[in-house]
Nucleic acid binder design. Structure first.
Lengths: 240, 240
DNA sequence: ACCTTACGTCAACACCATTGACGTGTATAC
DNA sequence: GTATACACGTCAATGGTGTTGACGTAAGGT
């Protein structure tokens, strides 16, 4: 097979499509993102994307080797948007908290795309930058390298894993989402104390707590535990 | 459209296929799991499942409304299997660790099903039993109700989120999975110290650590932090 | 103004899930 | 023991999917 993809840098001849669109990697990524947001993850197919772009579907293969490469570009775009405006404060715990919450909330803004993208390693510029930043925060704070790496790994995987998890709930069709909420109350709210004493005893608390994401608290727990592993362990409790 | 699915209870006429197989919901679920296990997630298609069963592919639609219903059935089976043989020890931290790791590893055995299952609330018996058990462990250990609920929430979401995250990597088509592995060495291994000093400095450690799931360590961090929140906080460090 | 070739287009392939129609063989009623 | 109803396995067909190779044209460098 002949390689049809030209690296974005060397691209020069921009030939308009029959319908007059001028393609670019950037335009394709943004159109794909819009498509996914508006019509759901299932709407992202090569043919539909071609139609949305005003181009032959297979023109896509001049820009991305395959749909997976496109998906990675999409994922990296999300990561990039999550970092806009972030700056180091010098307080490692506050910095990591900010990065984690930003990533999480950015993905929640695009649940359909997040669902597709959060599980992937892109190796693209936005991703490497955030990796560099997190490692920098930890090493600058005084964590030895092996510990910094392990904490980085747990931190970043947890952020992305929760992002996908919570995005999945948001990505459900509204009807199905509402129904799933009702089922939860109907089932868990009616479990008899005889067979399920602990659920029955805590149901009001449960129902209240499960409405929101578990991520912020999970993140605090991770940061608090990481703090105890610091060579000069400060006794900073959960929550700051 | 006419409903073709007959509830499992009322099924009575078992007519062998041309190839002599006698179908059942149970046989289909087990065959599908085996298919995924042996030939990877991509091998689970209606046609291949039909072939593996020794039946016409569309015979499946007599037992499940669509492939999604089949995958949910697979998921329910997984939850059940994850709990087989688990018993309370009385050590809340060991108990939660066991539950978390069991759920996680059980899902990894069937990534395709795990991906669909991990972000759904089924409200079925296997699920309510796990919830009851986790809450029981925490409350019996002496956590006040509000704290038990919050820890339960973070714990269970973390387990499911990581299960999906790690399952997603396994569920990738082999080509994409292989490429993702290469990305780490090709991209992250060659980032110059000038622009990415922290990645460059820790790359060997990073490459080694990222090969495995971040979940076990993230779980330890969560449990360690939870321990510090206990009313009679024991100073048990990370890792036990 | 010429040449080269990037890139948009087209046709085709092999796969996918899902459907409606059909007839057979089975379980039940008599 | 036989008749009847219909469950369910089968078949054909539909409209989707990603991806490839061939082709011509228009754009850029010279």
């Amino acid at each position: 097979m002949v390689e049809r993809v030209v690296p974005e840098g060397g691209r020069q001849r921009r030939r308009p499509t029959k319908q007059g669109a001028v393609l670019s990697e950037r335009l394709i990524v943004e159109t794909a993102l819009r498509l996914v947001e508006q019509h759901g993850a299932a709407a992202l197919s090569v043919r539909r994307l071609g139609a949305a772009l005003g181009a032959d579907p297979t023109a896509l293969y001049r820009y991305f080797r395959n749909t997976d490469a496109l998906l990675l570009a999409l994922a990296d775009e999300l990561i990039g948007r999550a970092q806009e405006g972030w700056t180091v404060t010098g307080d490692w715990r506050a910095d990591l908290r900010a990065i984690g919450l930003r990533l999480h909330s950015r993905y929640q803004a695009h649940p359909q795309a997040a669902l597709l993208a959060a599980h992937r390693t892109t190796g693209r510029t936005h991703e490497t930058r955030v990796v560099e930043r997190i490692l920098g925060v930890l090493r600058t704070a005084g964590f030895p390298d092996d510990l910094a790496v392990r904490i980085y790994h747990a931190f970043v995987d947890q952020a992305l894993a929760f992002a996908a998890q919570d995005a999945a709930a948001l990505a459900l069709p509204p009807a199905a989402r509402e129904k799933e909420g009702e089922v939860w109350h109907a089932v868990y709210g009616r479990l008899p104390p005889g067979t399920h004493p602990h659920i029955a005893a805590t149901f009001p608390l449960l129902a209240a707590d499960m409405r929101d994401s578990g991520y912020p608290f999970a993140l605090e727990l991770l940061l608090a535990a990481a703090a105890t592993l610091h060579p000069r362990a400060q006794a900073v409790p959960v929550g700051e």
